[in-house]
Design a protein around this nucleic acid. Structure first.
Lengths: 349, 349
DNA sequence: CGCCTCCCCCAAAGCGCTTTGAACATGCTT
DNA sequence: AAGCATGTTCAAAGCGCTTTGGGGGAGGCG
């Protein structure tokens, strides 16, 4: 059933039917009701492409996730972020197209998206510290919002980001306040912008207490359980092991816990752990005190906010960059406790 | 830059230019080269909507994920599945649109998708044991592939599924062979089809050794860490605690491990654990023997296969249902061991 | 009664592409 | 020289929708 058929059926012109359906004022109330009813009973839905072609608006946005190797880990955060965003798009009548683009084809993929005119805006995930995509996207002139920031970029762009620096500074300070001086950082991949900011927050907190970070107990990688386990194992076997860990994801924290267990350490007593926590559904524990002390950010909510920001840019046509910096909350759990007393000759600083 | 402009620029008709670009034979070699070069240098890309409108093919598929509440957990499997599928679509020049539809609006959402003609096919996620979507989709006539199956459905449809029954029968048998008789099952939500099949495999294995399942140590829920932790805690405090756990996801396994730790049990010695493992990137451990004994299925690969199946249906136009039943592999890790010897009065069966 | 506004409605012209059917050379056969 | 296949190009008709620029009838005004 298309517009033409519907119009013939109602003995009206396509114009009138179209206007009735789209709520234009120049159509009689009686006629409008007739049209709406007929559309309803005949399950009429306008053909999306025809509509898009005619209006020039696609009512679609793309989420772009770069992938540097076929075996790259899908960040679990992504799914939750997407699910938040999706609800916002659905309400606005927008389609969300998902594009996982290979790192090596990034430039051409973005040009393609722009020149095919298939979407009205982009949401860019997982930016690097010196991501070249900002410049390219600005040049292409397609509205976009970045989830995260690009420290090295001098260009203006819209973004929504957790205040990673502040969050990790706070997490580190919490450990310092508990008396820890030997604090390990298990971070995300060094190239990622969020990891760089987290590290700088960590270092700033240490510096404020006159502590130099020790490269032996700071590292970054894809955020896997195995990374948490192997790094923590290695560090706990160090001649001067850390008394506390600050880690960039709950998945890493799980690995650290396993390592502690193997070493016979009890988390919260022998070793402290503060984790960043994206408040993923499957790690949420609503019963009582949480297990992990964590710097928490509701990533699904971030997805909603980012989507609204993008839609706002598209709908208002106002291209001035918007930004939103969100604060994480420190939730105390059972994985942190006062630094254990140790022989002075092992303590540093 | 559109086709008309490009044609004028080359002093050719739109027809010729279009044909040259799309590789039709009835265009001279010299002309074709000219056209391709001009398209290249002017960054010409055909407008996707116009193309879709004209051809009637959208080159797009939708993945549909039902969501029964705003707070429902995003299954981490989803992200990996999607990433596999996405690569296949990209290669075929298809867009993937992602639609997370509220359970209550499911019917209208599907009708919408079909009658708007915005996609050529659907990939249906997370089917229930008696999912009504099969009948609806068959009625709508839009090609679709289900990831999973619908036990109650008598209709024919295309699906790709792990052999969950076989996998869990095998996992259970492994535990039985190690001498365990008291085996707990921590499953996914009861309504989910995969959970029902897993349970039946579990029960079949027990039955083959003359063991009745004990409802006290069998339960299902959203697959969260907290669910694993609280259920295992409760069961370990039972007057006749299980000596082994079979669980439906690594996330649950993590919770069980935490519970065991709290009870002073060592996994693989005091308590055994077999987990289903979707081979998610962030839990993969490439170094040496894996921690968890697991029934493993490469979900990213499943995504690729499902996508190929859907594209095949779309491209060949052959609507006969295709099915693919995949076998999981049992990988031995350190979380299983022989059943501990216990006082006879506590042993069952 | 004639004129002017509204109010509703319509025919037709796009949107940018594909595809049909025909035209026009060209070279070959008879 | 006419006739015919072959190879290359084109004009024009869609695809299903929106939107522009009227057109006609009903009612209000002088």
């Amino acid at each position: 059933m298309n517009l033409k058929q519907l119009a013939e059926l109602l003995d009206l012109s396509q114009t009138t039917v179209s206007r009735a359906l789209n709520g234009y004022p120049e159509v009689g109330e009686h006629t409008r009701r007739r049209v709406l009813e007929a559309a309803q009973t005949h399950h009429y839905r306008p053909n999306s492409w025809a509509k898009r072609l005619a209006t020039g608006r696609s009512n679609a946005v793309a989420h772009i996730l770069p992938m540097r190797s076929e075996h790259e880990v899908m960040n679990p955060v992504f799914a939750d972020f997407i699910s938040g965003a999706s609800a916002v798009y659905a309400e606005a009548g927008f389609d969300m197209i998902l594009s996982i683009v290979d790192h090596s084809e990034e430039l051409s993929a973005y040009r393609d998206l722009a020149s095919r005119h298939s979407v009205e805006g982009l949401l860019v995930h997982a930016p690097h510290g010196d991501d070249p995509r900002i410049a390219l996207l600005n040049e292409l002139g397609l509205p976009f919002v970045v989830h995260g920031r690009v420290s090295a970029s001098t260009q203006a762009y819209s973004w929504l980001d957790l205040d990673n620096r502040q969050a990790f500074e706070r997490g580190t300070r919490h450990l310092l306040d508990l008396g820890h001086r030997r604090i390990a950082l298990l971070n995300g991949l060094d190239v990622m912008d969020f990891a760089q900011r987290r590290r700088s927050g960590f270092e700033a907190a240490l510096a404020s207490r006159g502590i130099d970070p020790d490269p032996d107990i700071v590292c970054g990688s894809e955020m896997t359980e195995a990374f948490g386990h192997s790094s923590a194992s290695r560090m706990l076997g160090h001649r001067d092991p850390p008394t506390a860990f600050l880690v960039s994801s709950l998945i890493i924290a799980i690995g650290v816990r396993r390592a502690c267990e193997e070493h016979g350490f009890v988390l919260g007593r022998d070793v402290s752990l503060v984790s960043h926590d994206d408040d993923l559904g499957y790690f949420r524990d609503l019963s009582g005190e949480p297990y992990f002390t964590a710097i928490r950010s509701p990533v699904r909510d971030h997805g909603r906010r980012a989507a609204r920001m993008l839609l706002d840019i598209i709908r208002t046509g106002d291209r001035r960059p918007r930004t939103e910096l969100l604060q994480a909350e420190l939730h105390l759990g059972r994985s942190t406790g006062p630094a254990p007393v140790r022989p002075v000759n092992l303590a540093r600083g």
